[in-house]
């Protein structure tokens, strides 16, 4: 039996006084696309950020590719990982943000090469070749000398995807990748993500694009108030929701 790419059991997370995740279970198999849906404040983004250790979960077990996130278990004890080890783990998980977060002072090409060169120690020319391949893949081969501020939102988000892919991640996390885009630019980003899903990348996507979830996802999780209310095959969950909350949520977003 192959190990799941992401396995969460009873994950809890609180910020000062507020419990955001109240025991979340989740399992994502290799090569699968999983969508997290739910109202804002339900904990979707927090769960995503716990998976690549941008946030530290307080309780429960969270594994990526069979390894505990942020800890190492030896004997009966859990040892916190050093910063260096955590950085190494993160470099294998790609993340795409709602507000793109491209490095504003670097050109498109430099945005994609900097991680390869500085984190993975790849040779500069090799990194550039790879960056150009990825830019071609997201349809922006002619923009490599541009600065992020000279691109549209949709173009920036595609560069951000290329930047994450340049690290050759085994898992890609998307935190509402189309929520900050003008409606006519959403399609170009979803197209790139669809291609990526078809190439067999394991993806976890926080999204409000229900049609995309229905079409591309292998499974969908509905979070509300820090717990998973409902999950399963997207066609089933989104068409015939069983919980009243999901029915209410879908009636508002669809």
């Amino acid at each position: 039996m192959s190990v799941a790419m992401v396995e969460a059991v009873g994950v809890h997370k609180s910020y000062v006084g507020v419990e955001v995740l109240k025991g979340v279970d989740l399992s994502v198999a290799r090569g699968e696309v999983t969508c997290l849906i739910g109202p804002s404040g339900s904990g979707k983004s927090t769960l995503l950020r716990c998976i690549n250790h941008l946030e530290k979960h307080d309780k429960g077990e969270l594994r990526v590719d069979g390894e505990l996130v942020g800890y190492e278990s030896r004997g009966a004890k859990l040892y916190e990982l050093t910063d260096k080890r955590i950085c190494h783990e993160r470099s294998q998980i790609g993340m795409v943000f709602q507000r793109f977060n491209l490095f504003q002072h670097l050109t498109v090409l430099q945005n994609i090469t900097i991680g390869q060169v500085k984190v993975k120690g790849v040779n500069d020319d090799v990194a550039k070749t790879k960056a150009r391949e990825l830019l071609a893949r997201v349809g922006l081969a002619d923009k490599e000398k541009h600065y992020p501020s000279q691109l549209s939102g949709g173009q920036q988000q595609r560069v951000a995807i290329a930047r994450a892919l340049a690290m050759e991640p085994k898992l890609m996390l998307f935190d509402e990748p189309t929520s900050a885009l003008d409606p006519e630019l959403v399609g170009e980003v979803l197209d790139v993500m669809r291609d990526l899903a078809q190439s067999g990348m394991t993806m976890i996507i926080v999204t409000h694009e229900m049609n995309f979830a229905r079409e591309v996802a292998n499974s969908v999780y509905f979070l509300d108030g820090g717990v998973i209310e409902e999950s399963g095959d997207p066609r089933m969950v989104l068409s015939t929701p069983s919980s009243a909350r999901l029915k209410l949520f879908l009636s508002k977003v669809l």
């Binding site: 950085c87 993160r90 294998q92 977060n101 504003q104």
Partner: peptide, 24 residues
């Protein structure tokens, strides 16, 4: 967000400061 993006591609705190935050 600049810090988060740098960290998410595996940069250390020092690299993030030196390569991403300080130049901006």
């Amino acid at each position: 967000g600049q810090t988060e993006a740098a960290i998410s591609i595996g940069m250390t705190r020092g690299q993030t400061l030196r390569l991403i935050v300080l130049p901006q």
